[in-house]
Computed example of a mutant assay.
Amino acid sequence: MPNQTTATGFITSALETIQIEQHALEILSQQIDERFTQACEIILQCKGRVVVTGMGKSGHIGRKMAATFASTGTPSFFMHPGEAGHGDLGMLVRGDVLIAISNSGKSDEIMMLMPLIKHLGVPLITITGNANGPMPKNADIALTLGHLQEACPLGLAPTSTTTATLVLGDAIAVALLEARGFTADDFARSHPAGTLGKRLLLHVENLMHDDQDIPKVHPDTPLNEVLYEISDKRLGMTTIVDDQNVLLGIFTDGDLRRLLNKGQNFDVKVPVSQVMIKNPVTIQAGLRAVEALELLREKKINQFVVVDQENKVVGVISMHDLISAGV
């Protein structure tokens, strides 16, 4: 029969697990020394890829480590050590760096690869519990986690050790990111399909209405013809420009409603120059789309006219355009 654990018992167990793993990270921090610096320098000088390998739970952590490296400017992939012994070792070539993970430091599958790793002359960085096993003894740089207590009460399931390995991998990735001068734009280029990528990569020029889609009239255009232009282009507004396409003002459907709400009759033949909004807020085509969205919300307006350095109209972008694009 399983133990009848109360809700209080679940919470107690959870807190104990967290405390044990927190303590493991404190021990790990004491292991960060010149070996960490040397490992980062080897990876930074790598002309190829960082290949990460590990069996079992170490392999799962290794996959995440490789993914983090790859998305933060360090080309990397995971190689399963069992499959490596059956052909996948061809993934590893001169110029690469190998990171091998094993808490015991004596994974049979990884040790079987050692002669070929040495033959290739690939720098080997190991991540193990301590430096006594055969893996760290064969390594160029042997990173260690320290003597950690597993959070598992049986002391069997990898818990604290996998957490510490994951954190160590993140520490390497962040140190390399900073050393490379890796930017938010660089990160976005690795994530073009995600929301973050869209927010960082998309600019106003990628989403704006341009050319024949820009609602545009001259200042002497009668108001009734202006309304046709607003209706035809379906952006809820029109720009007013001179013969050189320089922006003079805008007129929106909101401006029309405000005229009607005044309760006064007005001549639909009146030129739009008499009722247009002069000096509207404008933006540049090179502005990030996410910044344009923030400005729209700040200004509490629905669209921007996009102009060049000479204040000539090059586009129009709306709140709807930005939200529809997933910005």
Score class of each variant (00 low, 15 high):
P2Q: 11
Q4P: 04
T6R: 01
I11L: 13
I11M: 02
T12N: 13
L15R: 14
Q19K: 07
I20R: 08
H23C: 07
H23L: 02
E26L: 06
T37S: 15
T37G: 05
E41S: 13
E41Q: 15
I42Y: 11
K47S: 14
V51W: 08
G54E: 03
G54C: 05
S58W: 04
S58V: 06
A67Q: 07
F69P: 01
S76K: 08
P81K: 00
A84R: 04
G85Q: 08
D96P: 14
D96H: 10
N103P: 12
K106V: 02
M111C: 10
M111V: 08
M112A: 15
M112L: 07
L113S: 04
M114G: 09
I117R: 11
H119Y: 05
H119I: 00
V122P: 12
K137F: 07
I141V: 15
L143F: 10
T144H: 10
T144P: 14
L148T: 02
P153M: 02
T162Q: 06
T163N: 05
T163C: 12
L168N: 14
G169S: 10
A171D: 07
L176M: 02
R180N: 06
S190T: 14
L200R: 08
L200W: 06
M208T: 01
D211R: 13
P215C: 13
P222C: 09
E225I: 09
E225N: 15
D232I: 01
K233R: 12
T239V: 03
D242C: 07
N245T: 10
N245C: 09
L247A: 10
L247I: 04
D253Q: 05
L260V: 01
N265W: 01
F266C: 00
V275N: 03
P280E: 08
L287S: 00
V290P: 03
E294F: 07
E294S: 12
R297D: 11
E298V: 04
N302P: 02
Q303L: 11
V306S: 06
V307S: 12
Q309V: 08
V314H: 03
G315C: 10
G315L: 03
S318I: 02
L322D: 09
S324E: 15
A325P: 03
V327T: 14
